[in-house]
Simulated assay, not measured.
Amino acid sequence: MGRLEVFGVAAGDPDPRAQRRLIDAARRGELLRLTPGRYVVRAVFATATEHERHRARIDAVMPWTSGDLIVSHHSAVVLHDLPWLGETPELVAVLDPKRRNGQRRAHLQKVGAAERIVEPVHIGGYAVTPLTVTAVDVALREPFRTAIVVLDAVLARGVSKDELLAELARRTPRPRASSRARRAIEFADGLAGSPGESVARLRWAEEGFPPPALQREFRDAEGLIGRVDFWFAEAGVVVEFDGLVKYRDREMRGGRTPERVVMDEKLREDRLRAVPEIRTVVRVTWRDVEPGGSAPARLERAGIARLS
C-alpha cells in the first residue's frame, strides 16, 4: 500500500508565509485540504486507491488527537492492508477508552471503549486494533459481504476461527449483531484468494448451491496445472473468478504482457478441460456475482444443482 504525503505547517511555525503558500496552492487547485491545515496534492489523490486515500486521512487526523485513541474498524482495516468492499468511509474510526458512548467529530468517529481492554499493535506510528479485534469489530458493524471479505483475509493471515469466536464472546453486543457476526465467522474461509472470490462464494451460498472446494490442485502428465478458485466435485465443474487484476497489475503479470497473460490463461484452461474429472470450466467476473448478475444461471447451465 502506498502512502500519500500529507502537507502542513507545524504548530507554532514562526513563518506565516508557509501557511499562506499552502492556502494559495489549495485555492489554485493544486492541493486538496483534508483537515484544517493538512493537505495532499490533488492530482496524486485523484489517482490513489481507496486505501491510500484513507491512509492520508489518518495521517492528517491522528497526529492532532490525544495519545490514548486506538485506530479501529475500517481505519484499522486500511492500516493492516486488508481488503475492503467499495469506498472507504471518510471519517477516521478510533476506539476511545475514556468514553462509554460514541462521538462523531468533523473528521473523526469515536467508538466508546470504556469497558473494553484492547492491547493495540503499532503500525506506521499509530496504535491500531490487532487483526482479531479489527475483524470482529467489522463483523459486528458492517454489511455481511464486507465482513466476509475482511474475515477471509484475516483467516488467511493465520488468525483462527477459535480466536475470532473467543474475541466475539468477550463482547456484549446486541443479540442480533452477535448472531450475525458469529454466522460470518463460521462462514469465513481463509482459502479465498481475493475479495471477488469471497463475494462469489457468499453468492453461491445465498442462491442455494452446495459449498465448493477452494484452491483445489489439478495435475496432468506435464505436472501441476494450478489451483482453481472453486471446484464443484459432484458436478465436475471448475469455476474461476476473473477479477481482471491479473491482466492490469504489472506485479501480478510477473513481467508478462497482458496478451501473454491471456494466452497463458487459455493454455491453462485447455489443460484443465482435458482432465477426465472436469466436465467444464466456467469463468465469472464481478458483474456476474453481484446481485442480479448471471452467475447463478450460468452455474445451473453448467450442471451444478441447487441444494433441495
Rank of each mutant, 00 (worst) to 15 (best):
R105C: 12
R105S: 13
A106G: 04
A106H: 12
K110C: 15
K110I: 12
K110R: 15
K110L: 15
K110S: 14
R116D: 10
R116T: 05
R116Y: 09
E119F: 05
E119C: 00
H122R: 14
H122A: 11
H122I: 11
I123F: 04
I123E: 07
G124K: 08
G124I: 10
Y126G: 06
A127G: 08
V128E: 02
T129S: 11
P130H: 03
L131S: 06
T132V: 15
T132F: 01
T132K: 11
V133K: 07
V136P: 08
V136T: 04
D137W: 00
V138F: 10
A139Y: 09
A139E: 07
L140N: 00
L140S: 06
R141T: 15
F144T: 12
R145W: 13
R145L: 13
T146P: 10
T146W: 07
A147N: 04
I148Q: 02
V149S: 00
V149H: 09
D152E: 12
A153G: 01
V154F: 06
V154T: 00
V154H: 03
L155Y: 04
L155K: 00
A156I: 01
G158V: 03
V159G: 05
K161C: 03
K161G: 08
D162A: 14
E167V: 02
L168F: 07
A169I: 09
A169T: 02
A169D: 15
R170V: 05
R171V: 10
T172K: 14
P173I: 00
P175M: 08
R176W: 11
R176M: 10
A177F: 13
A177E: 14
S178G: 12
R180L: 14
R182Q: 12
A184S: 12
E186V: 12
E186L: 14
F187E: 06
G190T: 10
A192Q: 08
G196W: 04
G196D: 06
G196F: 03
E197Y: 01
E197W: 09
S198G: 08
V199C: 09
V199M: 02
